[in-house]
Design a protein around this nucleic acid. Structure first.
Lengths: 289, 289
DNA sequence: CGCGAATTTGATCGGTTTCAAGGACCGTGG
DNA sequence: CCACGGTCCTTGAAACCGATCAAATTCGCG
């Protein structure tokens, strides 16, 4: 249901002829007509990015305009599409317009570790693009609409708009902060705590991009993906979810629909402290300056 | 012994009257005379930073000069000093001139997770400073010499020197890449693999700032700290180290001195692929442009 | 309705933790 | 130079959390 709301929120994006990403090639294909369409019609396609960046720093109207005018094209993907592979040479950033994605790594024994979960407004892969070679993969969890933005255009823009560069830098720093929390999460917390922590993080990130009461939401992940994110197995995740439900911390209407029964208790069980998300950065900044 | 070499390399730094950091307050104390001394005499104190930043991007002579002229003062610390606590309001960055530091988090049950290990030339806490509130702590592993640089000065400099800003941004992105590798390391690898991976990473980072054969080095960490970095217990780290030695992957002359017996085997055992360190970024950049 | 994917359950196994105690090392002071 | 004390390393045995394996059940969807 939340997904539906988002689609409505994004209805400025023309999707008359959504372009499916080919699973085999991993690169988008696009007719000249479609390319032209996405460049001109979808002039406000990038608005989800603003909602996110405004959390970090104040942007002037001119700066926001410049961000919206970044060249891009919009792509529709199936679920479970791998957009970027570890080792790829990357020259574009991805912006999520709708849907959910993860970043991940594959380790030697074939195990997979999800590094972060992303949603509408998140600018993905700017890290990979600036570093030049991808050190991790990117995969969609659900059907997504993504905007593909050339790094060169971002460079050109940030070179003349220092405040935008600072904002994007800040955005990547928050990513780093979340990584650090995840290191602690998978390194030093029990299975139950890890899962509870993830549920809290997801609720708060949802709330940030889509204000409203996010105590009930659809978790766009299978238990196996949840396991990959928490460093557990899917079997154990299943048992942990049951335990959380038994304690009344969550209720599970369907398998993926999470209803947080008691936020305070869940946050305590998840050893969750929102400060690492830095969601109050703009508020704090405004208050002190 | 490596530490000795480094001290010699840093002998431009005047340390006549090292200023001990007070354990209780966590803030440096400094006589006016000493402050003046560190500002003027140690004009090349910041050179270790250049060696690191040159790995990421080319810097012009003027830019390097500007970086060296950043206002700062030099501080000597004991081992196990906590320089920054989670939650601190941060207005300075720390540059390591000699010695080793870690970044860490404390989780709910009192457990500690080390997030990254740092050495000469590493610019610490720029993340915390830009984000405003520290989301993690910083502690010295050994006696260190640190330069404390006001964030305001870095801001002023990077606003007029975009290439320096890009370089520092790149530096924080590499930090993020290392964080991602650590998430995968503690999340999805066995104890033995985790420890082997850490030993490989440390050798390579040493090599980067202090070229020479780093197959033998002093690991500036106790087994308990190794455990905090790998998400294990010190008892288990002890057993893992013995196992690695039994397999001939490492030799242990003293408890902390690591001699890598077979780099290839250790890298394989540690599922280690250096690409996430992005140490070849400058090389690659030079080759393609 | 029927198929494949995802969830759930049970039983067993094993890597890692925990607890506890002994021993080695190192810096310090006498 | 040695004695001392504290930190760190090492070892053993037992307990436990989470993994593994396998099978049954439910869910989602065309």
């Amino acid at each position: 249901m939340i997904l539906e709301l988002w689609c409505r929120a994004n209805n400025a994006v023309k999707r008359g002829d959504p372009l499916a990403l080919r699973r085999s090639s991993g690169r988008e294909t696009m007719t000249p007509a479609a390319r032209g369409a996405s460049m001109t019609i979808a002039s406000h396609a990038l608005t989800p990015m603003l909602r996110k960046l405004r959390l970090w720093r104040h942007l002037t109207a001119r700066e926001e305009e410049a961000l919206l005018n970044l060249p891009h094209h919009v792509i529709s993907t199936d679920r479970l599409q791998t957009l970027v592979n570890d080792g790829d040479v990357v020259s574009h950033a991805w912006l999520i317009l709708s849907g959910f994605c993860v970043r991940f790594k594959i380790v030697g024994d074939g195990g997979r570790q999800i590094l972060s979960i992303h949603m509408m407004g998140d600018l993905l892969d700017l890290q990979n693009a600036i570093l030049g070679v991808a050190d991790h993969g990117i995969q969609t969890l659900t059907k997504c609409e993504m905007a593909r933005i050339p790094l060169a255009a971002i460079k050109t823009l940030t070179d003349v708009e220092p405040n935008i560069k600072d904002t994007l830098w800040f955005d990547t720093l928050v990513d780093g902060s979340i990584h650090r929390e995840w290191v602690a999460n998978v390194g030093r917390r029990s299975g139950k705590t890890r899962v509870a922590h993830l549920l809290c993080e997801f609720a708060l990130k949802l709330e940030a991009v889509h204000p409203g009461d996010q105590l009930k939401y659809e978790l766009p992940m299978t238990q196996e993906q949840l396991a990959d994110a928490t460093g557990l197995t899917s079997v154990h995740v299943n048992r942990v979810l049951q335990a959380l439900a038994a304690d009344g911390l969550i209720q599970r209407v369907t398998s993926k629909s999470i209803l947080i029964g008691d936020w305070k208790k869940l946050a305590t069980a998840g050893d969750f402290n929102r400060s690492y998300l830095h969601l109050d950065a703009a508020v704090r900044r405004a208050g002190t300056s």
